[in-house]
Simulated scan of single mutants.
Amino acid sequence: MDASTVVGVLVVAGGAALMATGAVRKGRAVRPLRPARARAAAERADSRVLLRAAGMAIASARDAAGHGEPAIVTVEDVMRLTVEHFGRTDVPREQAAAALRRQYERAACATDCVTDAFG
């Protein structure tokens, strides 16, 4: 065998080994390895969903409010949007209220919005 044949065989063997390793692992490298990391990742995902729903609720209330009227944003709006847009039905009211408070402060809603998230 000459050198180019040996290199070709090594390249093919290396590629086959990488494909076999990928088939066996099936993406485990990107999954959390410990239950604590899995829970933390799930909590971060839930938090992002709630913040998005709260932002959508604020934007919707601002669009619905007339000129000079305050936008009324409720925790129920956030919970409804979480179910409708993200399919999350098990959202506790306290978490939805916390997300709405956070978005309320981030979006400077104190000037033109009213909410029940602080009560």
Score class of each variant (00 low, 15 high):
98 A>K: 13
75 V>F: 03
87 G>C: 06
87 G>P: 06
95 Q>S: 11
68 G>K: 03
103 Q>F: 02
8 G>D: 09
86 F>S: 02
35 P>E: 06
71 A>G: 09
69 E>M: 03
94 E>W: 05
102 R>H: 04
59 A>N: 07
69 E>Y: 04
17 A>S: 08
28 R>L: 11
118 F>C: 13
90 D>N: 14
90 D>G: 05
110 A>M: 15
107 A>W: 06
58 I>K: 02
17 A>G: 06
8 G>C: 08
37 R>S: 07
29 A>I: 13
27 G>Q: 01
42 A>Y: 12
46 D>C: 01
52 R>M: 11
10 L>D: 09
96 A>F: 12
17 A>E: 01
11 V>Q: 07
91 V>W: 14
112 D>R: 04
42 A>C: 01
94 E>A: 13
4 S>N: 15
89 T>D: 15
27 G>E: 02
21 T>P: 00
119 G>L: 15
110 A>W: 15
48 R>M: 10
91 V>M: 12
7 V>R: 15
107 A>S: 14
71 A>I: 07
34 R>G: 00
61 A>E: 05
78 V>K: 05
82 T>R: 02
85 H>V: 09
49 V>E: 07
82 T>N: 03
34 R>S: 04
71 A>T: 03
97 A>R: 13
109 C>L: 10
64 A>N: 10
24 V>E: 14
56 M>D: 11
84 E>I: 13
53 A>S: 13
72 I>T: 08
31 R>K: 13
27 G>I: 06
8 G>N: 10
90 D>E: 12
51 L>Y: 02
109 C>P: 05
9 V>E: 12
25 R>P: 00
116 D>K: 13
49 V>C: 05
70 P>E: 04
101 R>Q: 14
84 E>R: 09
103 Q>D: 12
11 V>H: 02
58 I>C: 06
41 A>H: 10
38 A>F: 05
92 P>E: 13
26 K>V: 07
108 A>F: 12
26 K>N: 07
87 G>A: 07
18 L>K: 00
105 E>Y: 14
3 A>L: 15
52 R>S: 06
100 L>N: 07
76 E>M: 09
89 T>Q: 14
79 M>P: 03
68 G>N: 03
63 D>C: 04
91 V>R: 13
67 H>A: 15
78 V>N: 02
17 A>M: 03
8 G>P: 08
87 G>H: 08
84 E>N: 05
57 A>P: 04
16 A>S: 00
37 R>V: 00
40 A>D: 07
103 Q>S: 11
75 V>A: 04
54 A>S: 11
31 R>A: 14
111 T>M: 14
4 S>D: 15
107 A>N: 14
97 A>W: 08
105 E>I: 13
29 A>V: 12
18 L>Q: 00
44 R>P: 02
103 Q>P: 01
18 L>A: 05
4 S>G: 13
78 V>T: 03
74 T>Y: 11
41 A>N: 10
111 T>A: 15
48 R>Q: 11
9 V>H: 10
49 V>F: 02
40 A>V: 00
92 P>V: 09
27 G>V: 07
50 L>V: 04
36 A>W: 09
70 P>D: 04
83 V>H: 06
34 R>P: 00
